[in-house]
């Protein structure tokens, strides 16, 4: 195992997939000469040239649509959003073009394209730069959604996403890029989409989450251990496809669940998961499922307010206490 940052893991995945398939190219703002706004594409311009590592104008709708058209014609684009906050300008092309093309052409145009970049809040970037965007994409049939929380997952899942023949929204975390972790040394380390990962095992309660929130859940789980409460921390890793088997397995074991996510509560990912658990494992539940989310407000700037708005380990512990009736 090599220890590397999340950023380096993504960089390796891109490099390996570009070496493997000449149809893969990376396009986005600042990805080439600047090495990427978050340096994810560092060194790739030198290695692959400007035809394959492409600095775009600030035209999210335009270059996203360009990528979708290139995918229609047989290439495998990786479109980088500086952050997904800016991808709202492009969501028409993701949903109306990419996600629907295969269906409305009755299978004539597969859409092997990855849209990637950070989602959610970093630190004090305030309302327009701090939004978790998963649900906008997971809502649409035809679009897969991947949210790696560790370097190993980042590498293995990005490689799988690039090889997948459907559009994939690949959502990273600004605050994760420097996060270090072990990554297997395999020549070709790929993690299949649709497989959740039990990041911490315990039998008392299921903490189900995705993306960078796994770290908040793990923090909560560690604190709970001291209290003698053992939590499963189940990292979904991909939201669509969704590893419902793993969710049910954990819930059937613990009979209690908390869903933690970075985004807003209304029609959030947790709402979907809760609905499915109650439908498919109602008799296994000993308590209502509780969701922990961002406060239902735009992200404020002031440090103290931002802290209040973000879901924290303490929020998770409170929720766990509720579902355990403690």
């Amino acid at each position: 195992m090599a220890v590397m940052t999340y950023r380096e893991a993504l960089n390796e995945a891109l490099r390996e997939e570009m070496e493997r398939d000449p149809d893969v190219f990376l396009m986005g703002e600042e990805v080439a000469e600047y090495d990427g706004a978050y340096k994810v594409s560092k060194g790739l311009l030198e290695e692959f040239g400007e035809q394959r590592i492409v600095d775009s104008p600030i035209s999210e709708l335009g270059f996203t649509g360009l990528g979708v058209g290139a995918a229609m014609a047989g290439l495998r684009p990786v479109i980088e959003f500086m952050t997904f906050n800016f991808a709202f300008l492009a969501i028409d092309q993701v949903i109306n073009s990419a996600a629907k093309m295969y269906y409305m052409s009755e299978g004539q145009f597969p859409m092997p394209i990855v849209f990637r970049g950070p989602t959610g809040a970093a630190l004090q970037l305030s309302a327009q730069h701090s939004q978790a965007c998963e649900t906008y994409y997971s809502h649409a049939p035809g679009c897969k959604v991947v949210t790696p929380g560790t370097p190993a997952d980042a590498k293995g899942l990005l490689k799988a996403a690039i090889r997948d023949n459907d559009p994939v929204a690949f959502m990273e975390g600004e605050s994760l890029y420097n996060f270090k972790g072990e990554v297997p040394d395999d020549d070709d380390f790929v993690i299949p989409l649709g497989v959740a990962d039990l990041k911490h095992e315990g039998g008392d309660v299921s903490l189900i989450t995705h993306g960078k929130m796994i770290h908040v859940a793990l923090q909560a789980a560690q604190k709970l251990e001291k209290d003698g409460i053992h939590a499963d921390v189940l990292d979904l890793r991909t939201i669509r496809p969704l590893d419902m088997d793993a969710i049910l397995e954990s819930v059937k074991k613990t009979n209690r669940a908390v869903y933690l996510e970075e985004g807003w509560p209304y029609a959030g990912t947790g709402a979907q998961i809760v609905s499915m658990i109650q439908e498919e494992a109602f008799d296994d539940l000993d308590a209502p499922i509780i969701r922990v989310t961002q406060a239902d407000v735009p992200m404020p700037y002031a440090k103290n307010l931002e802290m209040l708005a973000k879901p924290s380990a303490n929020h998770v512990i409170e929720a766990v206490n509720k579902v355990l009736y403690r």
């Binding site: 597969p110 092997p112 897969k144 649709g194 497989v195």
Partner: peptide
């Protein structure tokens, strides 16, 4: 339900209105 996905991944659910 045909041709929503070009690749039905062997793991996980892709459709949310039906059971596996």
């Amino acid at each position: 339900y045909a041709n929503v996905w070009a690749e039905i991944n062997p793991n996980g659910r892709l459709f949310f209105d039906r059971r596996p």
